Simulated assay, not measured.
Amino acid sequence: MGTIPVTVLGAKMLRDELHKLKTKDRYEIIQAIAEARSHGDLSENAEYEAAKERQGFIEGRIAELEAKLSSAQIIDPTSLNVDGRIVFGATVLLEDLDNGKQVRYQIVGNDEADIKELKVSITSPIARAMIGKYSGEVIEVEAPSGIREYEVLEVLYV
Rank of each mutant, 00 (worst) to 15 (best):
M1H: 10
M1F: 12
M1Y: 07
G2E: 14
T3M: 14
T3Y: 09
I4Q: 08
P5I: 01
V6W: 03
T7R: 00
T7I: 12
A11N: 05
M13G: 01
L14T: 01
R15I: 11
H19W: 12
H19L: 14
K20P: 03
D25R: 09
D25H: 10
D25I: 06
Y27D: 11
E28K: 14
I33S: 05
E35R: 15
A36P: 07
A36L: 08
R37F: 00
H39V: 05
D41L: 02
L42P: 14
L42H: 10
E44P: 03
E47D: 12
A50I: 13
A50C: 04
R54T: 15
Q55S: 13
Q55Y: 08
Q55W: 09
F57N: 13
E59M: 12
G60Y: 04
I62R: 08
I62E: 05
L65V: 12
E66F: 01
K68W: 02
L69G: 08
A72F: 00
A72V: 03
I74V: 15
I74D: 01
P77Y: 02
P77L: 00
S79I: 11
L80Y: 01
L80M: 12
N81V: 13
D83P: 02
G84I: 05
I86Q: 01
I86C: 14
V87D: 08
V87G: 07
A90Q: 04
T91K: 13
L93T: 10
E95K: 14
D96T: 08
L97R: 11
D98L: 10
N99Y: 02
N99V: 02
N99D: 06
G100R: 10
Q102F: 07
Q106I: 00
Q106S: 11
V108S: 03
E112A: 04
E112D: 09
A113E: 04
D114T: 12
D114N: 15
I115R: 14
I115S: 13
E117Y: 12
V120N: 08
T123Y: 13
I126G: 00
R128G: 11
A129L: 06
A129V: 03
A129Q: 09
M130S: 05
G132E: 13
Y134F: 15
S135T: 11
E137A: 00
I139Y: 01
I139H: 02
E140R: 15
E142T: 15
P144L: 04
S145G: 10
Y150S: 01
E154I: 04
Y157E: 06
Y157F: 09
